[in-house]
């Protein structure tokens, strides 16, 4: 189902939380709203759900303005960060709640609950209460409750943030698979750029209530619209080198660390290295500038040894220092400028 935000603004008291947001989501897309805490991404989701009112602007679902449609009639399903499972109901009752509210008869309800439970492999838990479940199990139940009916779209508010790292990664994959199976439009809120990159068909990066960029994960990564997006997406973060009028940005994987001098390479000192197992992060100092480079797993260098850097000049981004916007790519000698 198509979803559209048209010049949507939300203010709380005097503070502007979402600032003139316009966003168009196509049917079946997996959209991730990405940004640091307080960027207005959760408020955006809550406005779509009808849990907050937009101060101005229009929210459309399938071309129909829904600003004044109460939450219960918007036909969306939401997964909360806290999962919000009903503590006094069994898991089966929790999953069946949206169907019970829609007055489906008991047999039909039970069948659909069972089918969804099978899909998410939580069948053995159906008679338990939420407090008897682990975090990962609760998360599955919350998902099951969302997909038990066929809503117009799924809204997910940091659904994986309460899980430990390993489980988060596993659920991330399952979510993606699930969305692929169901093909339902999904809006997903997170501050984790890895989740955004892996899940989204398109990512909307937000900062202080304003949309920074709305594009595919690859474009966001390779062609950031401004310095904020460039810095927020990617781990370790992009390196920035301030010049008089421009800021140059280069991703760690585009800096090659050499142990012997070479033509055009810049001299640097190893500040510290971090072994990651499959690769090595090399923290460097060039004068008083700090840089991070990604090196192969077998790269070894002692602290304070001299190394040489080769920078892929075609991969350097230029940002206006004042506006922080990206400038058209310059292909001239970025390497000399890096000093």
């Amino acid at each position: 189902m198509g979803i559209e935000f048209r010049n949507v603004t939300k203010t709380f008291g005097g503070a502007c939380v979402v600032d003139n947001l316009s966003l168009e989501v196509r049917d079946g897309e997996f959209i991730v709203l990405l940004g640091p805490s307080g960027c207005g991404k959760t408020t955006t989701l809550r406005m779509l759900a009808g849990l907050e009112n937009a101060t101005s602007g229009d929210i459309l679902i399938n071309g129909e303005r829904v600003n004044d449609v109460p939450t219960q009639h918007r036909d969306l399903a939401m997964v909360f960060q806290s999962y919000a499972l009903y503590p006094h109901m069994t898991i089966a009752e929790n999953i069946g709640y949206p169907l019970r509210v829609r007055k489906l008869d008991k047999a039909d309800r039970a069948a659909r609950v069972r089918r969804v439970a099978e899909m998410l492999e939580i069948e053995p838990l159906l008679e338990r209460k939420p407090r008897q479940l682990s975090g990962g199990e609760r998360q599955r139940v919350a998902l099951a409750r969302a997909i038990v009916r066929e809503p117009r779209a799924y809204l997910m508010d940091e659904p994986l943030s309460n899980l430990d790292a390993r489980l988060r990664m596993q659920m991330r994959g399952e979510l993606k698979r699930l969305q692929h199976q169901l093909g339902t439009t999904t809006i997903y809120v997170t501050h984790d750029q890895a989740e955004a990159m892996t899940l989204a068909s398109r990512v909307a990066v937000m900062k202080k209530g304003q949309l920074q960029q709305f594009d595919t994960p690859l474009n966001i990564y390779n062609h950031p619209a401004n310095r904020f997006v460039a810095e927020f997406v990617g781990s370790p973060s992009m390196n920035f080198i301030e010049d008089e009028r421009v800021t140059k940005g280069i991703r760690p994987e585009h800096i090659q660390v050499l142990t012997t001098p070479e033509d055009g390479a810049i001299e640097a000192r190893v500040y510290v290295t971090e072994l990651m197992g499959n690769e090595t992060f090399v923290f460097l100092s060039v004068g008083d500038q700090r840089l991070i480079a990604r090196a192969p797993a077998d790269f070894r260098a002692d602290v304070d040894t001299k190394v040489w850097l080769r920078i892929a000049s075609e991969k350097v981004h230029f940002f206006d220092r004042a506006t922080e916007r990206i400038l058209p790519q310059r292909r001239d000698g970025a390497t000399e400028d890096a000093k």
Binding site: A49, T71, A77, M78, S82, A84, V101, R145, R149
Partner: peptide, 18 residues
């Protein structure tokens, strides 16, 4: 009581009173 629970109920399609 956490608000999430009622909000979840509303999103699930229930009325305020429900």
């Amino acid at each position: 009581l956490p608000r999430d629970l009622e909000e979840a109920a509303l999103v699930d399609g229930d009325s305020r009173l429900g």
